[in-house]
Design a protein around this nucleic acid. Structure first.
Lengths: 286, 286
DNA sequence: CAAATAATCCCGTTAATTGAGACTATCGAA
DNA sequence: TTCGATAGTCTCAATTAACGGGATTATTTG
């Protein structure tokens, strides 16, 4: 793994919840985006002023910078809301992500009726993000959705990635999250944690049903490099209709599919060929 | 329509392609996002340096600001790619947009087999953006997709919005786009253009098949206010399987559905009730 | 037409960005 | 482990832009 990625990953993991670093002006502008939440999607400039403790001129300048970039757009009643650029950028990611491009045809070949739903989750240093979710069983209830993020410790798609982290990252993660790790039953000490992770690596998948009690989620790791996890594949099936044997088959299926994706992804690497066309996968470790 | 919106809409429309206004520092940082295109999704800092003509220190500062905001993320081989925050923000929009929330159940009631696909497009001042696309006919070929934008003059979803623009906006649009308007056959003079738009308003829908020769797209306007268009609904059907009578029915269906959405959207307005809960629709005119 | 609100403009002061290059950290290979 | 290469950070003085406060313009509502 290149130096750049490791540095970034280490920082992302260790910096967790430290916050409050010195901010550039651009950083302050970008912080305005944090205000726009699901509960509070529309803000007037006056509201932004009082929230930021800024003057009118400053608040308008911030909003204007974001508006000019298309990240905000004027809404009804003199409010601003998240802008069109976000949807456009998301489309760009969907269309240019090598992982999605590679995985799609391979997954579409795997039409087993056992698969009630499937999702691809991607690793972003301190969190795991669902980047694609497909539902086949109309009765299944899913908590995953593109753009939803999960902590590295929560849920099968996250945990299988956690298990394959390089040693120093895993160590960092343990020291800043030992309480949660212990609570989740992954080990009360660093040694225990390391052992349980090694065990998970040995079997090569993770079965979970904690985030959603009605389904099994079976996750297998996806590598963009011989030794670097970048994502995970998850097959989902309702518990009530799943026999032990079917669960076994589901596990085999997800591991096989993830392996095929990994193979293609690794060969997609810049080793040979035009690196501007076949650029290294944007899947990342940081 | 509030003053804020008009000002923004006028500017967006008249400013088209003028570009090159003085940029704030935050604006310069946000410009970096423009580099990340579908053809060129991964950039090293060195590449950004030479593209921007900035020094190493500056380029790193820009990238760091965007990285801290989650808009960029480190990719493989020391590149940066668009970050997880974009997917998260897109999810937030999907979950908080009143138009989507209102339209979804109403559209799901409308299960006519005539509808091969449908899409909702939203007006953003100088462009029209597809915000939701559903395909029912598996053989249909669609150019629309969430996040894809179209100029105001191109395609049925755009044109029906164009037709309902307030007079001064339409006037602005004509004076900066008279050549394209004439080429598109919408009128060689302002008078002709105004007449053809009035005619379209009178019939209340727009049928087009220019962007995709294999299908009809039938679009009807959606209003967030008695007189303000904010979006359009489009029903799509393959031409080869569509009789004249079916086209008529499709038109009636899309107009009916769009009207129902408009009604609900208008009543959703802040007129009564808690405006923090039932905030005015973020659909916008600018 | 007048009042109210949204958004921009102006300008002296202040605080942050900038560029150049030295410096540190990590990786890959021997 | 050492070395070389590359990624990314840091320091500092000079420049440049952000900031605040208040006046000004633009647009809607009554």
């Amino acid at each position: 793994m290149p130096a750049a990625l490791m540095a970034a990953a280490d920082k992302a993991i260790s910096m967790e919840k430290s916050g409050e670093k010195k901010q550039s002006s651009a950083g302050k502008v970008l912080n305005v985006l944090d205000l726009f939440t699901e509960e509070n999607p529309a803000w007037t400039v006056e509201m932004i002023m009082s929230e930021l403790g800024a003057t009118r001129a400053t608040a308008y300048r911030y909003v204007k910078a974001l508006y000019d970039a298309g990240l905000l757009a004027p809404g009804a009643a003199s409010t601003y809301v998240l802008g069109p650029r976000i949807m456009q950028l998301d489309r760009q990611i969907r269309r240019s992500d090598p992982l999605l491009k590679i995985a799609q045809p391979l997954l579409d070949e795997d039409q087993s009726p056992l698969i009630g739903a499937r999702s691809i989750s991607s690793f972003y240093g301190d969190q795991v993000l669902a980047i694609q979710v497909d539902r086949f069983d109309p009765e299944i209830f899913l908590t995953m959705e593109r753009g939803r993020s999960f902590p590295l410790i929560y849920g099968a798609p996250s945990r299988i990635i956690l298990a394959y982290l390089p040693p120093y990252q895993m160590r960092n993660f343990y020291s800043s999250n030992s309480a949660e790790i212990s609570k989740a039953g992954l080990g009360k000490t660093w040694e225990e944690f390391r052992t349980s992770m090694r065990k998970m690596r040995r079997i090569g998948y993770c079965v979970g049903n904690e985030s959603n009690r009605t389904v099994y989620g079976v996750s297998a790791p996806i590598f963009h490099d011989k030794s670097s996890v970048s994502a995970s594949l998850t097959y989902v099936r309702r518990i009530e209709i799943t026999s032990d044997q079917e669960l076994e088959e589901l596990i085999k299926a997800v591991v096989r599919a993830a392996n095929r994706i990994s193979e293609k992804l690794i060969n997609y690497s810049p080793a040979d060929g035009d690196s501007s066309l076949v650029f290294p996968t944007p899947r990342l470790a940081g």
